[in-house]
């Protein structure tokens, strides 16, 4: 039997609402670790507010933040699954349905190309008009389909950066550069503590895709030595939650390293996710 479009639609809507209204267990664990090491009064206050907000949001299924983000979809399709265009349509409808239920902030910009840039025709009144960009698709073993919905807030987008690093074939050069971007970003972001998502690839597109995958799949509970090193370097900057000072500017780092180019250049995509991100949820249908 093929995959039911109706199930895909409902599962996607459910994933979007969960992503927008709850912390993952990994994010909660990262906060718990941070509260243990923090001593600064304002930093503790801010982190407890983030957690209390998440408790209320989860209990009452309310948005974690009024910037409900731009929905992004990571699709993993089993190599034995019968999957087609109608299923893609069902997932798109599921995103719209999830935005209606959450509810998402009605922030789709109206008008033609120029009007959208100038934001001269105002905004749609409908949450569901915020459409996702093209889905990212991967093949996985089996006959099921896995959908991950991510909600990407505007603050981290202002600070995110995809750029080249002349790394002299040394990992330390990459780590130092990424940490430096992170220090600058957490100073400006406002909604910290952050989770730093990093993609390292051959092109800007690949690095950004890897970074998005790090947000979707990265493990906030088990940090690699490389991830810990980046976190520690940024935390040494001392900007703290909301920039008010303290030991914890960054809760965790998620690094995803892809194929690399034969060259003295690495392309890094670094997104300093805010203190409610990654807002993610995964569902499987099949």
């Amino acid at each position: 039997m093929g995959i039911s479009s109706e199930k895909l639609r409902e599962a996607t809507a459910e994933a979007l609402v969960r992503a927008g209204s709850s912390f993952t267990p990994g994010l909660r664990a990262a906060y718990a670790r941070a509260l243990e090491v923090e001593t600064d009064e304002r930093s503790l206050w801010a982190m407890r507010q983030f957690l209390e907000n998440a408790d209320v949001a989860e209990r009452r299924t309310l948005p974690l933040c009024d910037d409900t983000g731009i929905p992004h979809v990571l699709l993993e399709v089993g190599e034995l699954a019968e999957f087609g265009g109608a299923h893609l349509g069902a997932i798109t409808e599921g995103i719209a349905e999830g935005l209606k239920r959450l509810p998402g902030r009605p922030m789709a910009v109206l008008g033609d190309e120029v009007q959208r840039i100038e934001q001269s025709q105002g905004l749609s009144l409908h949450s569901e008009d915020v459409i996702p960009p093209a889905f990212s698709v991967k093949r996985i073993p089996g006959d099921r389909v896995r959908i991950t919905v991510l909600l990407l807030g505007g603050g981290p987008e202002i600070r995110a950066k995809t750029y080249r690093i002349f790394h002299k074939h040394r990992l330390e050069t990459v780590v130092d550069e990424v940490a430096q971007w992170g220090i600058e970003a957490v100073r400006e972001l406002g909604c910290t503590p952050a989770v730093v998502a990093v993609g390292l690839g051959r092109t800007h597109f690949e690095a950004t895709s890897l970074m998005l995958e790090a947000m979707a799949r990265g493990d906030l509970e088990r940090q690699t030595p490389l991830e810990q090193q980046i976190t520690e370097k940024i935390n040494a900057g001392g900007s703290g939650p909301l920039g008010l000072g303290g030991r914890v500017s960054v809760l965790a780092t998620l690094v995803n390293i892809g194929p690399q180019r034969a060259s003295g250049v690495r392309i890094a995509s670094v997104r300093t996710c805010c203190g409610i991100e990654p807002r993610r949820a995964t569902v499987e249908v099949g």
Binding site: A54, V56, L64, D67, P106
Partner: peptide, 23 residues
């Protein structure tokens, strides 16, 4: 902090004061 859920009960009333066309 961005405490949207937490603030829900602390916003007692809202009304537009100017420029309703900006949504």
């Amino acid at each position: 902090t961005p405490s949207t859920a937490l603030l829900t009960d602390r916003i007692l009333a809202t009304e537009i004061a100017a420029f309703p066309e900006l949504g």
